[in-house]
Design a binder for these strands. Sequence first.
DNA 1: TTCCATTTTGCAACCGGTTGCAAAATGGAA
DNA 2: TTCCATTTTGCAACCGGTTGCAAAATGGAA
Lengths: 333, 333
Amino acid sequence: MTVTLKEVAELAGVSRSAVSRTFTDGASVSDKTRRKVEKAATKLGYTPNILARGLTTRRTKLIGLVSNNFHNPIFLEVFDQFTRKLQGVGLRPLLVNLSDETDPEASVRMLRQYSVDGVVVASSTLPPGFSKAFKDAGVPVVNSFGRYSTAPEFHVVGIDNVECGRMAALEFAKRGYKHVAFLGGPDTATSTQDRFKGFSGEISQNPDMEMTVSYAKAYSFEAGREEMQRLLNIRPLAEAYFCGDDVLSIGVLSAIEDAGLNVPGDIGIIGLNDMEMAGWQNINLTTIRQPVQQIINSSVELIVSMLEDPARYPEARLFPCEVIERGTLRPVS
Amino acid sequence: MTVTLKEVAELAGVSRSAVSRTFTDGASVSDKTRRKVEKAATKLGYTPNILARGLTTRRTKLIGLVSNNFHNPIFLEVFDQFTRKLQGVGLRPLLVNLSDETDPEASVRMLRQYSVDGVVVASSTLPPGFSKAFKDAGVPVVNSFGRYSTAPEFHVVGIDNVECGRMAALEFAKRGYKHVAFLGGPDTATSTQDRFKGFSGEISQNPDMEMTVSYAKAYSFEAGREEMQRLLNIRPLAEAYFCGDDVLSIGVLSAIEDAGLNVPGDIGIIGLNDMEMAGWQNINLTTIRQPVQQIINSSVELIVSMLEDPARYPEARLFPCEVIERGTLRPVS
DNA sequence: TTCCATTTTGCAACCGGTTGCAAAATGGAA
DNA sequence: TTCCATTTTGCAACCGGTTGCAAAATGGAA
């Protein structure tokens, strides 16, 4: 069925080594035998078995792409970018959906069984111990969208969530909002915690501003809507809400709309991510843009460099965010 | 670094075969040696290398998950379900993003290099020749969300798009719409063609109904919005539109809203898919539900059965759709 | 033509597993 | 205890590749 090295060697009248060598870069083969081999190979439709090769080279070109965010639309963009970039450098993503199992050990074991060359953990909600487990197992790992640390134990690529919180606060101050609110994602997520830290820190600098705080159960439409519905029953209402992320913001917007209130007239909203939907004209969400593409480019770059140097010193790479002004905050006065 | 069979055998004081046998189901090992092996294995943290095993067993448990729909939110649900179900039966998805390369041969070659056990082609827009290429290469393939055929050359699991078109038409008739429109996805997609066939066929049965037809450039928000903006400049307007899918419908809704018209008061809309967003309260789209979960369950079931019997006779599995009534069509009078 | 440095080649062992087969071990029955 | 059918075990070959090493081939220079 599937044609092997041996058959090509026989047809070309050379040794198996010769065939192997014409298919490995930089190996020593004369033009003459290379031509013979190539001719035989194309005739038989031969293509080397990467997994068999991997047995001796210890390179499978397989990268574990691990995530638990299969419900947030931004992750479709993330998967799109990751698969493209990885394919672009000849790597293949083995997708792992962590929504079911929470045991990091099981994933580590599984991915080692497949001798992946490296792992990308793409999540802002997984505990840091998760990426650590790969590192401890000797598997190159980069944690994308993870928490920044000044002494990272493994590679982290993402944004400075503390700074993002600060940006939201400054944006509110600039527009003269006095009573503002932090409406975070789940308070167990490090991203939520960091954003809160930056936000509250900045607000507390401002003696004439006050802040209320609450958390939605997830980074999701339903959770945002639910939490906002609850908040709408409590007076006084805040003038502006910094929401956990865009999809949560959209849930919040829908609750506000149902309550007959107007955005940005009655209430201001700022999200985070700038996913595609945020720009849809019927949503038109003012938000803080997370540079997904740069984060992913950089993550792939890092994982590639770790293939060459697995002991590469862990690094935290942070990308700046920017406010994308659309229609859910009142103008700067 | 990574511990192998041999080391376990040495520690346990048995042959390599014995170790291998304790890790393969149904192999003949006495309880005594099994215990010895297991003890040694856990002590060393041994776990068999699936890829090395695959060399002789010809089973890698790798499944190519091939798609080109990385921009339609419904596919996040699709990827979520597929990865879960595959993991559930011990298979691992190797994700292939076809957005860049269009050459089926390249993908076939690549996936054969990784000796995948099978391939799921998840797309309603890829040409049928694509799945065929895998079949011809001897790789078990199922085409999910593909076009139904009475004489399928490979396994197809999906919906009857002709019937869906008919359902939309009947729904319009039931609600007394007279001038209706088909606003399809790209007219090169077989799904679009089939839906048109069913829709127009049913409308033509109804002498007092008339129909206009147009196509958006893609199954996307922007394409739907753009096409609707164009249509809004042409009089007379249709009373109700059957849109290519949900995300396209949302674009259409946003164009209508911008034009100051009301849904369902001025214009009725019905979509297709029933993706999560369709149920969001600020969208509340009446749509035809495609049973994604059943389609995926069935696809995984089929691929599993093909692993046992690769020559399994090709089958087309169709799942019924149903209208989900929300707020974008006027009530039945 | 001879010599020698350099390039190319094939052999054989290896990567980490599985498996058919023959030999060894086991465990009742007589 | 002996015998024999059944179960368990290890050897050795294999899956489809790569690679170090020594031998063979090549190709100038003298």
